[in-house]
Design a protein around this nucleic acid. Structure first.
Lengths: 219, 219
DNA sequence: CCACTACCGACTGTAAACAGTTGACTTATG
DNA sequence: CATAAGTCAACTGTTTACAGTCGGTAGTGG
């Protein structure tokens, strides 16, 4: 039994459904499956080498995440976002993240949490010269962490339900525009506001951040 | 062709999946399937007279709505909400509905929308002597309308994703406690704030409303 | 040339069968 | 009696097969 060092813990055998889900989500948010494209079940199941039944479960979930839209007779296609929808998505996102910030502000002993947030910013900083994808990734991680640290599972879940739409929005505007919004300083401001416990400042900063991001993306 | 009046338009042939979804959602939020109960696919599919494949699609959706929680090896059970989770749910709900109110405040010509909101309050008022279920129903309708009238589909969708959890929360505390929060006056206050365009007052009213509701439910 | 019909292909809705895994119960053994 | 191996039943994960419906297209009659 000795010598089987690392790969013992957590052999990551996800179900095919989850694998399909990840694969499709990535394909959509990366633009490999372009908006408006009709998804044919038989076609996809053959591509992914899984059965239709398994695939359909994944498709339902993507539909609920807002990445797919259903046409007549259950025909699914990749959702197309217009400018208003992007603004709407970022408005909801701002509301959720504002709640996160306010919640964090009310935690008495939040030094540890602040530390975690600074860490994710450090990752962003380190990724500044990396690929666009990695930069987007680190940005998303910061905002997801913001929600997770509140300990409010419902908040985190709502945010994650929006994550796919957010990624589609970024793709819509083009990654180059997307990364423009990811200034390290902007994020430090948010953390600073939380650190001092100034909920309304945090809220204001986040709303400005989101408004600016949405505007950049649709311009 | 004449004389076939009403039943022509919209023959409501929902798919079995949607029917199962509604049936299960109702069963859970009404307490017929009590929290913590294990759901066995074969058992349910026989009860509902549908195949497992069709059922599983519905179950996935309920899982994502937060009505079901997945145990080891994919075993699903009806989610059990504790007091903190209820408070968390209502905090997110408050954030979403505050956004709705603020959005409505910014619509220049909102007389028509105000009118719609008053109508739903009238329905609530008319239901005051009806069954507890109907009173809950009319209350939910008001809040859903609040979100729908914004025209922000993402907001509406996020709220609806939370709807099941909200209903579970109400059931957790008991319908008697639930309806205590549904005062007509409280709701009129919200509409009044929106009518005058006072976003911060609307926000404040909604937050108080939600805090009170959550507190009542867990007490 | 136009319209109407009958067929055909493609795709989703639904059902039923197969496979693998886990936990409980039983049995054998020291 | 306690413990370990073995057996079995209960589920979920996954696949395969079948049925129904819509859209298009070719063929036919006026």
């Amino acid at each position: 039994m000795a010598g089987l060092t690392a790969p013992l813990l957590g052999l990551e055998k996800k179900s095919l459904r989850e694998q399909a889900l990840s694969a499709l989500r990535t394909a959509i948010t990366s633009g490999e499956l372009e908006p408006g494209r009709h998804l044919v079940e038989t076609e996809l199941s053959e591509m992914l080498q899984i059965s239709r039944g398994t695939l359909r479960e994944a498709l339902r979930q993507l539909e609920q995440e807002g990445l797919l839209s259903a046409g007549p007779r259950g025909r699914l296609s990749v959702r197309h976002l217009d400018e208003k929808e992007i603004r709407d998505i970022f408005a909801v996102r701002a509301a959720l993240e504002s709640l996160a910030a306010r919640t964090l502000c009310e935690i008495p002993d939040r030094a540890q949490l602040i530390q975690s947030l600074h860490q994710t910013i450090d990752v962003m900083k380190a990724a500044q010269d990396a690929s666009l994808e990695e930069r987007v990734e680190s940005d998303m991680e910061f905002h997801r962490t913001l929600c997770r640290l509140t300990g409010n599972e419902t908040l985190l879940h709502s945010w994650e339900s929006l994550e796919g739409s957010i990624r589609m929005s970024i793709m819509f505007g083009g990654l180059e525009k997307g990364v423009k919004n990811m200034s390290v300083n902007r994020h430090r401001e948010i953390v600073a506001a939380i650190e001092t416990g100034d909920a309304s400042l945090a809220r204001k900063t986040i709303h400005e951040h989101m408004d600016a991001a949405a505007t950049t993306l649709v311009s």
